[in-house]
């Protein structure tokens, strides 16, 4: 399976700024229900998304469990 083309097919944002905006909105919206770890995880994911084409990098790094 070609993971990169799959990721490109489903990408919801055109630019990095749009994504950052959405992340901020999510944190504002759900911030009350989320713990620090969960907020950290959203940031981590967004960083990964940017370095992605990064998807592959995400796969290689393996998030720490």
């Amino acid at each position: 399976m070609n993971y990169v083309s799959l990721a490109i097919k489903h990408q919801p944002f055109k630019t990095k700024e749009e994504m950052n905006q959405a992340v901020r909105c999510h944190i504002v919206e759900h911030g009350g229900h989320l713990s620090a770890t969960e907020i950290e995880m959203i940031h981590l994911l967004s960083v990964m998304h940017v370095s992605i084409q990064g998807w592959r990098i995400l796969k290689m790094i393996r998030l720490p469990i």
Binding site: M1, Y3, L6, A7, H10, Q11, P12, F13, E18, M19, Q21, A22, V23, C25, H26, E29, H30, I42, L45, S46, H49, W55, K59
Partner: peptide, 26 residues
């Protein structure tokens, strides 16, 4: 609903592949 998870299967050998996480637009 902050992220969406898409599970995938390996087409050749079968079995679970890596998940794809999408950050949903707000």
């Amino acid at each position: 609903s902050i992220i969406t998870r898409i599970e995938s299967m390996r087409p050749q050998r079968g079995g679970n592949g890596a998940n794809l996480y999408i950050i949903n637009p707000s």
